[in-house]
Structures are given as C-alpha cells and as structure tokens.
C-alpha cells in the first residue's frame, strides 16, 4: 500500500532517472491493469449465471377452448389468451404505463389497469391513457393436436393471429 503511495508521486519527482521511472511506471501499470481486471471480474461475478424463475413458456389449453370472443386471464403468467376473429392470440397483461397487472372487465369489454386508469380494448390497443403503447402480443404456438403454448418472452407484431 505504502509502496503504491510513494510510487504514485515518483514520476513527477524524478523524471530524469529513466530506470527508476520505468520501474515505477511498470508497477503503476500493473496496478492499473489489476484494478481494471478486478472491476471486470466483479461485474462478471455479479451477473447471475442461473435463474430460478418460472419458465416463460406455458401451456394454455386447447384451440377449441377459445371460440371467438373468449378472453382467458392467466394470472400466474400475466397474460390473456384471446379467441379472436379467425384464430387465437395472446396479450401481455402487464400495463405499458408502469407495469401494474391489468384486468379484463367482461361487462364493458375492456382491459383496465387499476393503478392509473389506463384502458385497452380486447386487442390490446389503448382506449385511453396514460398508457403510452398498446399491450404487446405474445407468441402462441399450437402442436399438431391443437394444444397451445404461449411464450411471454417473445413479442410478436400486433395483429399476428394464430389461424385455426
């Protein structure tokens, strides 16, 4: 520690002595490199390498469970599975304003956020504020038997319906 302190002051004091200066700079350079390395290593250390989170992909029943006009709210995975015109799609239930969980109100046919009053229609488009964007559409896949899986980590373009 003390060596470092003394070395730090050296280049200014004795600039004419090349050998001393070289050694001091060598030491300082190594210290600097170490500091950078430690910084990077700590960052690496802090980055989690495994996650204990529920899988983003989940099973959402069968195609036939969603005739046109049905909206099913999956509370655990925070998504709506909607039977729309000509197919099925999934909507994120996380409000685009500040991340509260919205609810579907069947009597009014709107998806409303309890926190700041944003309202969306059944396709996720904003009916009125403060939400800045429509609810994202999530990827829905069906296997050959018509069993559905939804992946909340994959956002698909608005209007991409899984055809029945």
């Amino acid at each position: 520690m003390r060596e470092a302190g003394e070395g730090m002051a050296l280049p200014l004091k004795s600039s004419e002595e090349t050998r001393r200066e070289f050694l001091a700079r060598l030491g300082l350079g190594a210290c600097a490199l170490t500091a950078v390395g430690v910084g990077l290593t700590v960052l690496d250390y802090l980055e989690p390498k495994v996650l204990f989170e529920p899988p983003t992909e989940f099973k959402a029943g069968h195609l036939q469970d969603y005739p046109e006009g049905t909206i099913k709210f999956d509370e655990e995975h925070r998504a709506y599975i909607v039977g729309g015109q000509g197919g099925v799609f999934a909507l994120s239930a996380v409000c685009t304003h500040l991340g509260c969980i919205t609810r579907y109100h069947a009597d009014e046919g709107v998806i409303a956020c309890p926190c700041h009053g944003s309202r969306f229609d059944a396709e996720g488009s904003v009916v009125h504020g403060p939400a800045p964007r429509a609810l994202p559409w999530l990827e829905v896949k069906a296997d050959t038997d018509g069993n559905l899986t939804v992946d909340t980590s994959v956002v698909v373009p608005h209007g991409k319906v899984l055809k029945v």
């Binding site: 060596e3 070395g7 001393r20 050694l23 030491g27 190594a30 210290c31 170490t34």
Partner: peptide
Amino acid sequence: PLRRIFAITSILFL
C-alpha cells in the same frame, strides 16, 4: 530497491 520491489510485487499481484 523500493521501486524494484514495487514493480515486481505489482506484477506478481496482477
């Protein structure tokens, strides 16, 4: 040899 020690230990440390 203070500077020499400093240089060597710093590199070892690295």
